[in-house]
Design a protein around this nucleic acid. Sequence first.
DNA 1: CGGGCGGCCACAAACGTTTGCGGTGATGCG
DNA 2: CGCATCACCGCAAACGTTTGTGGCCGCCCG
Lengths: 345, 345
Amino acid sequence: MNRTTTLRDVANRADVHPSTASRALNERTRALVNATTVTRVLAAADELGYRPNALAQGLKVNRTMTVGMLVPDLTNPLFPPIVRGIEDRLTAAGSTLLVANTDNDGEKERAILDVMARRRVDGLILATAQREHPILEEMLRLRYPIVLVNRTADVPALPSVAGDDHVGIGMAVRHLVELGHTRIAHLAGSRAVSTGLVRHQSFLTWMETHGLTVDPELVVFCNWFNQQSGAAAFRELLEREAPFTAVVAANDLVALGCYDVAAERGLAIPDDVSVIGYNDIPFADRFAPPLTTVRIPHYEIGVRAAELVLEAIEHPGSPSVGLRLPPELRVRGSTAPPRSAGAGG
Amino acid sequence: MNRTTTLRDVANRADVHPSTASRALNERTRALVNATTVTRVLAAADELGYRPNALAQGLKVNRTMTVGMLVPDLTNPLFPPIVRGIEDRLTAAGSTLLVANTDNDGEKERAILDVMARRRVDGLILATAQREHPILEEMLRLRYPIVLVNRTADVPALPSVAGDDHVGIGMAVRHLVELGHTRIAHLAGSRAVSTGLVRHQSFLTWMETHGLTVDPELVVFCNWFNQQSGAAAFRELLEREAPFTAVVAANDLVALGCYDVAAERGLAIPDDVSVIGYNDIPFADRFAPPLTTVRIPHYEIGVRAAELVLEAIEHPGSPSVGLRLPPELRVRGSTAPPRSAGAGG
DNA sequence: CGGGCGGCCACAAACGTTTGCGGTGATGCG
DNA sequence: CGCATCACCGCAAACGTTTGTGGCCGCCCG
């Protein structure tokens, strides 16, 4: 019974043609219609509670004012602040964000991208990019507005915004060597994603910079950036029985994994082993002990990513930039000078 | 140059009329067209990489396969698991979720609801409901598919799914009295939202059930369910100088606020004062000390909410149910028998 | 006084689908 | 052999907008 009110309705009530009503309603074309007519139309629209049908508009102008975002798992506390940044910036520009979780599942990802395509999102923000990603090439080829967030890809010329992992890792190892650590282990992230790779490489070069040699026995790769993988990797590290007094984890979650097995093996953090995380996720300061970590500006990363995608939508083919936002060291309770013999020996 | 391929394109390639192609593509109407024609159309669609335009479809059938969700703040760790539950269930049904944050800002909320209306979402899930909410009445009047999550409203007959706060609070106070506490304080949530109200009321009745009187001095209301408000409330409580040995917080975040001022006042948890939270947000077990709290099934709450809204969309006017999912007590390190004189005295 | 110009508006096509309706050819049956 | 039936498909309208085109009228200016 209660059909939603349409442009024709307000046009009728204002005694004008729908096209005139349309122009009157649109900021951009309002100048084309007589001022008094404009007020008449506006009044009619207001009285009828008119809400333009975004589908019809999108269909006509070929622009949905929607951007899609793929995230591995919203439950990972790293992402909500980023999403907030994106969303806030997007709504300021009149667009809407459509988030979806992939759970690192390629099949799911395909399905989600399919949905995004059907919905004709204006652009895409990926927090899920593997370094080599079939879709990435395709997107680049189609000149589809896309930006990578928190990760980068091997395919060059793809816009991205992330923290500067190289300097971040530099801060981490510098902090540890200043505390007096020399045998420093690394629980690296998967080499299939950029963060895993560059943090690993940066770890190596920074160690060298400080004149330290890194025992290959002291770096182990995690499958994923989560607690389970972190725990598994730390167990592996301990079983190698090479001595170390500190570990830089690829990630706060990986660091939490260390907390777990440290507890189960009776190792004290930071007395027996210092651990330093990465990202400074929410509540990292509430862990026991509070986690020393490298903070990246999550929210602003989101904001900048949104701006990049908006720019790419507005001006297709503009040069693609790769932003690296500066990180900060957050020294807390999980690092200390090497006091005992350490672990693993 | 690269116009997206349309239904006409696949129809042409399959040498049929667009209407036939449409029927062939649609599971529901496929039976109406000859089997060999179907395969021809399907092949054409596949070869052309055809993706139906969801806007055109939505415009035609008046159904967007989208449901909107309003959440106070995604950054609150309570919500991501709920969102995941909703999203998973929705995508299983072929729909998509559109989340937006309100920051408890009425103006923002209005704007977001406006966007949702323009986009013609099929239904709405609100995690932001105040007990009395102007829009709620309107939605109910319009018989618009809507479900409240994690909260309820005073306007009856509005479907909702949440944890059973009454039994949850019962578990909390029971736990404390079993530990031997008698002077138990309550940091209540805002009376403007259902969770604040019923947890408060439940606290009172359960205390009475256990034969305990509650000193009015020992309950203070928080403005919001967050750390700052929790801290402020706890300070207020301490300044009243009425003795107590335990506090049940309206919320894990409020409990964290207690952690903060306890630290700043030199009070030990749980030795000087036990604190128990509510919700069991992610990482509550990693706090120092690990937080004793009442767990609600976040993910399943989300799933059920999604099912309710799907049902409401499918069968408008069906009776609206209010689900209360059973909570569980999670005993951890923030509660203990009263050992010292307590606090506040 | 006439031609041109500009302000204002209506007309209609188009965006990409879905769907009721009708038509055609083949088949079955009386 | 003729008529009804049926399977299959095309036609066209419609969903709610936006926008190019053109028309009308009043005005200015030569």
